[in-house]
Amino acid sequence: MDRISLESDEGLARLAHLHRFAQVGQCVNGVTHDINNLLGAAMAYAELAALDPNLSPETTRMMGQIVDGASLVVGPRRIAMTDPAHIAVNGEPQNCNGCHQIFKSGSPAGAALSFHQDVQLRHGLNDRCVNCHDPENRERLTLRDGTAVSFKETAQLCAQCHGTVYRDWQRGTHGKTLGSWVTGSAAQHRLNCNDCHNPHAPKYEPYVPLPGPNTLRMGNQAQDEHHDDGGKESPLQRWLKKPEHRTPGRLTVEGGHP
């Protein structure tokens, strides 16, 4: 199917046709559990819902479910990118081209996204999807000269603009190394750009700082100097119990001991 333009009557007519087709698909899906048909229905519903500015909670929930794989996490993401890229639809991994064979919408002038609405593009001047995404093959990224690269090789893509940081990253002076300090050991694992930075909004979100020193001789003189309850509760635990610090996902001290 060709590209659909929502600006023309023909496009809208085709969209309506697609909707009917999708409803049929939904029925078929109920019987056959055909994944492609399920996708078609979900996509049609999502597209229609996107035309309505007042999204119902149910729709929002469903959209959130659909875009689960791309949902953004504050802080280091640590989500391994795969090749080919995929997205979870109703818990089932789906390849990008499964939908984008039908929808080749290419937002000519930075139009609002109708589907990936969780994506907030806050990447400075880099404000066009196709600066990084290959318009023809959504399972690939594209370099400036048109070379397609996989989602695992994002460093090359970022290097086009962030040369200084890329140089530092190659040397190991920027970025994060996990596992081992022994150069070249099998346990050593260097993180890629998109392991820590959200490519759509690379600037780090602010953090809530964990509690500071409250020890003998170092405690905050203005506050409770020394709180000894026999080791039942550490200052970190007390701090985490405060209601304003209970935001899940932001304050977990991951790691620690093995």
């Binding site: 602010p206 809530v208 964990l210 709180h227 000894d228 026999g230 080791g231 001290v253």
Partner: peptide, 21 residues
């Protein structure tokens, strides 16, 4: 960025006294 995650990872790793901390 001053998030103090290192401070508390260190306490968890190295068996420091939690109270007094």
């Amino acid at each position: 960025i001053g998030c103090r995650k290192c401070v508390h990872a260190c306490v968890a790793e190295n068996n420091q006294s939690r109270s007094p901390e």
